[in-house]
Simulated scan of single mutants.
Amino acid sequence: MKKLVALLAASLLVLGACGNEETAPAEEIENQASTETVDTEETESEEGGVNVDKGLFNVEVTLPASFFEGEDLAEVVANAEADGIGEATANDDGSVTYKMSKSKHKEMMEEMAASVEETKTDLVESGDFPSIKGVETNKDYSHFTLSVDREAFENSFDGFATMSVGMVGTLYQLFSGVQSDDLEVLIEVKDVDTDEVISSVVYPEALEDMGEE
């Protein structure tokens, strides 16, 4: 399961670099995942093309073909099943549908949460971003606050750290089933001494802006 989470995180980074150049048509996105389970709760996110269908017993997650460019889909399916996901199906359009129990989906979300926490710790303790003194989040990882040494931050490239938390936060939101209209991860950077907000950025809006440049 951890291998799959790592793959999805890497795929999201690739999608961010690509911007919106290969966004699937809305009709295709809407048809990528469906379920016939009675009393089904369906939530759909078109940012990144991830669909999450939550039935009574199972959860289906369909990722678009853009997540798997250059990958052998047979190998993707085999790896997913080897990781204990349950079922994985390569679709004719190049997308892949993962069908798992609700308990497996919960496990995946817990691993994604652990990945976010690890990212937060690394930003402060790795030494790669020396101006960052602390990272705080809300419960669903839709809001991050980076406390920084302002002078050191503004005279360095530590601002790239916002991309790391923006990516993992967006990935968590997508797989938790947040609808596209509500998908938003806010990262605020504040002066550790004064609590003044120095700057802020919103994902996935920031990815869209990069794609347009």
Results as ranks from 00 to 15, higher is better:
2 K>Y: 06
6 A>P: 15
8 L>P: 15
8 L>C: 11
12 L>P: 13
13 L>W: 06
15 L>N: 14
15 L>A: 12
16 G>V: 05
17 A>W: 02
19 G>W: 03
20 N>G: 08
22 E>W: 04
23 T>R: 11
23 T>M: 14
24 A>G: 05
26 A>V: 03
26 A>F: 09
28 E>A: 08
28 E>I: 06
29 I>V: 10
30 E>M: 07
30 E>H: 10
31 N>P: 12
33 A>M: 05
38 V>N: 00
39 D>M: 00
41 E>D: 04
45 S>C: 08
45 S>N: 14
47 E>V: 01
49 G>Q: 11
56 L>M: 03
57 F>L: 00
58 N>C: 03
59 V>P: 00
60 E>I: 02
61 V>C: 01
62 T>E: 13
66 S>H: 02
66 S>Y: 05
70 G>P: 00
71 E>S: 11
71 E>K: 15
72 D>M: 14
73 L>V: 11
74 A>F: 02
74 A>H: 03
80 A>I: 00
84 G>T: 04
86 G>V: 01
89 T>L: 03
90 A>R: 14
93 D>G: 05
93 D>T: 10
94 G>W: 15
96 V>E: 03
98 Y>G: 03
102 K>C: 01
103 S>N: 09
106 K>R: 05
107 E>D: 09
107 E>Q: 13
108 M>K: 10
111 E>G: 15
112 M>R: 12
112 M>W: 01
112 M>T: 12
113 A>T: 10
114 A>N: 03
114 A>R: 04
116 V>N: 02
116 V>Y: 00
122 D>Q: 09
124 V>L: 13
125 E>I: 13
131 S>H: 10
131 S>M: 10
132 I>C: 02
133 K>C: 11
133 K>S: 06
135 V>I: 13
136 E>N: 06
137 T>P: 00
141 Y>R: 13
150 R>Y: 15
152 A>H: 10
153 F>M: 09
155 N>A: 11
157 F>D: 04
158 D>V: 07
160 F>A: 09
164 S>T: 05
165 V>G: 09
165 V>Q: 06
165 V>C: 07
166 G>R: 02
168 V>E: 12
168 V>Q: 04
169 G>T: 09
170 T>D: 15
171 L>V: 07
173 Q>M: 07
174 L>W: 11
175 F>Q: 06
175 F>I: 10
175 F>A: 06
176 S>Y: 07
180 S>H: 12
181 D>A: 07
185 V>S: 07
187 I>Y: 05
190 K>A: 00
191 D>V: 15
193 D>Y: 14
194 T>V: 11
196 E>P: 00
198 I>H: 08
200 S>V: 12
201 V>G: 05
201 V>T: 09
202 V>S: 02
203 Y>C: 05
203 Y>E: 11
203 Y>L: 12
205 E>D: 04
206 A>W: 08
208 E>Q: 12
209 D>H: 06
210 M>L: 04
